[in-house]
Simulated scan of single mutants.
Amino acid sequence: MDHSRLDVETDGREKNLAEFLAMMDNYTPIIPDAVTDYYLSRTGFDCDDVRIKRLLALAAQKFVADIATDAFQYCKVRQSGNRRTGKERKTVLTMEDLSTALAEYGVNVKKPDYYS
């Protein structure tokens, strides 16, 4: 590989990263900065760069949105088998739907015995 080509690719990536981080200055994630700061401090993460913290908040937001979308799909599949003709039912997300979606991401949720 030509060194000049590698330098151009590296410069392009650095420019894209710099532009992306600049956008994070003006981006307001759904998860407030104070909430992000609280949980990051509990894990021992120490960073003064608000852009990095907002990037982590955006990743958390995406993670939760993906789980919610998957749980909704499980709910639709489950309710499609229970649908009665002539009567529309409301979509009701259950803990079973959420637990199944979370399991795909390696999060195991077990209902306490006293709820059985």
Results as ranks from 00 to 15, higher is better:
L17P: 15
D97M: 01
T10K: 14
E96K: 14
K53V: 15
Y114A: 13
C47T: 02
L6M: 12
V64A: 04
N16K: 12
L93P: 03
V77G: 08
V107F: 04
R89I: 14
H3M: 04
G106Q: 07
Q61G: 06
I31E: 08
D7C: 03
G44A: 07
E88K: 14
A34D: 07
K87I: 06
T91V: 13
D48M: 07
V8G: 00
R51M: 07
V109A: 13
Q79F: 09
T43S: 13
K15D: 02
D49Q: 03
T69S: 13
V92K: 12
S4R: 04
K110D: 10
A18W: 05
Y105Q: 00
M95Q: 02
L58G: 07
L40A: 15
A18M: 12
L55C: 15
K87P: 03
I31W: 11
R42Q: 11
F72R: 08
Y39V: 15
V64D: 00
S99P: 03
T85A: 00
Y27P: 07
T85G: 01
A71F: 07
C47V: 01
R13I: 05
Y105K: 02
K87L: 02
T91W: 08
G86R: 04
K15G: 01
T10R: 14
D97S: 03
N26E: 02
F63K: 14
T10L: 11
N108W: 07
L21H: 07
L21S: 11
D25W: 03
T94I: 08
